[in-house]
Design a protein around this nucleic acid. Structure first.
Lengths: 224, 224
DNA sequence: AACTGTTCTAAACGAACGTTTGAATGATGT
DNA sequence: ACATCATTCAAACGTTCGTTTAGAACAGTT
């Protein structure tokens, strides 16, 4: 009687709050938070306009729940991986640290990963005040622990330099994960058929090579 | 009679259009395009609300002129540097190619560079349709030429891989140049007192190391 | 002084936004 | 059957947005 997928397509029997979260996540990722109206969201979710206020209080409340629903599970995995790395005998390599930070994102289902990272990169570059304070409190501890592990893996390297290169990596990650639609890219060739595993490997390799390269900075700038 | 700086501060005698461009650039960079109203811009520029329509036609027209005023001169320098590299006898190194792409941005005055790159990174992650088509037409050729030079500097490497890593570099650059305000950063330590030259050198070094690292991808992902 | 064209201004326009309200609806427990 | 609670709904609220309009202020030329 029932098919393999739970309530596959036609009339959506999930709770209204879930449908609102899904629609908001998709639209926020597609258009940005400020550019998405509650009317768009409720129409896409086949819900009433006032249901956002009823279930989430406000648009900001909806945004917070959209974010937390994806970030919190990822952070649990991140902490577990970091714990495993630090309780081992051998000190972890840079690749292993970066992998612990990046892999939990890539192990999400494809569409979840895509929408979530696109939304994150938008927020990272458009400081919605309500979202930023929330993000700060839930991913700040993870960032601090990851940076601490990197510091221990790079003894003698100034902390500002490590931090700067970690910043480079964050930018590379957000850009790689979010800017894949052709309308968005300024140059028309885009390797869209990249698998998640391969993308993760490329990103870890790229970032590890850049972070490890910590020679004499002053003499390296080519004087043209 | 006249001081060294042309009309230094008090009552602003520059043309209204210039004041509007400056105010719009600052506010767009601070808050994003969609979140900035024409009333904020005209108030900051001490101009009338309708003056935007008079001088630029619409808000999109204002945005296009804000962008073109900064990008077009940078692109002229980029083309000149690329020409110099390609008419030399020795083939250019990866560092030289990246430097030709990045240096013209860093040689802008400090506040121009900061505001412009913050605005660019916002647009790069919030596809305003009008701005994107304009950006595509004015920086598409530059991107194509830079990618062509990278391809020639990395013979035998698949083009998709080069493109992917160039994408990483763009993300690193945008993130490094734009995310320096403490309210914005999820982790509170930020090396704000970095000089432009040092930041450029770090960025070129980081990206060149990552791009050059083109070994066997499949075996590099640490299996945790 | 009179005319012409450019620039600026105050006021209003319609549309879209997030939010709130109060009643209708449906399920649950007694 | 009634009462209770959570949920949904249509409608309206006040605000803000980008844009438009018609006229005032000012310059330069004849």
């Amino acid at each position: 009687m029932n098919s393999a997928t739970p309530t596959p397509s036609a009339s959506d029997h999930r709770a209204t709050a879930d449908r609102l979260l899904d629609a908001a996540e998709q639209l926020f990722a597609d258009q940005g938070v400020a550019a998405t109206s509650l009317r768009q969201i409720t129409t896409a979710a086949s819900a009433n306009l006032a249901s956002v206020g009823y279930h989430f209080g406000s648009k900001d409340g909806l945004l917070r729940e959209v974010l937390g629903r994806r970030i919190l599970p990822v952070n649990v995995i991140r902490l577990r991986l970091l714990d495993e790395l630090e309780t081992r005998s051998a000190p972890p390599s840079i690749e292993e640290i970066l992998d612990a930070f990046l892999r939990p994102i890539f192990e999400q289902p494809e569409n979840v990963r895509t929408n979530f990272t696109r939304l994150m990169s938008r927020l990272h570059h458009s400081p919605d005040p309500a979202a930023m304070s929330y993000l700060q409190e839930i991913i700040g501890p993870i960032a601090t622990r990851t940076l601490g592990a990197l510091k221990r893996a790079l003894p003698g390297v100034p902390v500002e330099r490590i931090f700067l290169r970690a910043h480079f990596m964050i930018g590379a990650m957000l850009n790689a994960l979010s800017a894949w639609d052709p309308h968005h890219c300024v140059v028309d060739m885009a390797p869209r058929n990249e698998s998640g595993d391969q993308l993760l490997a490329e990103l870890v390799q790229f970032s590890a090579a850049g972070i490890r390269q910590l020679g004499e900075i002053e003499t390296l700038a080519p004087k043209r």
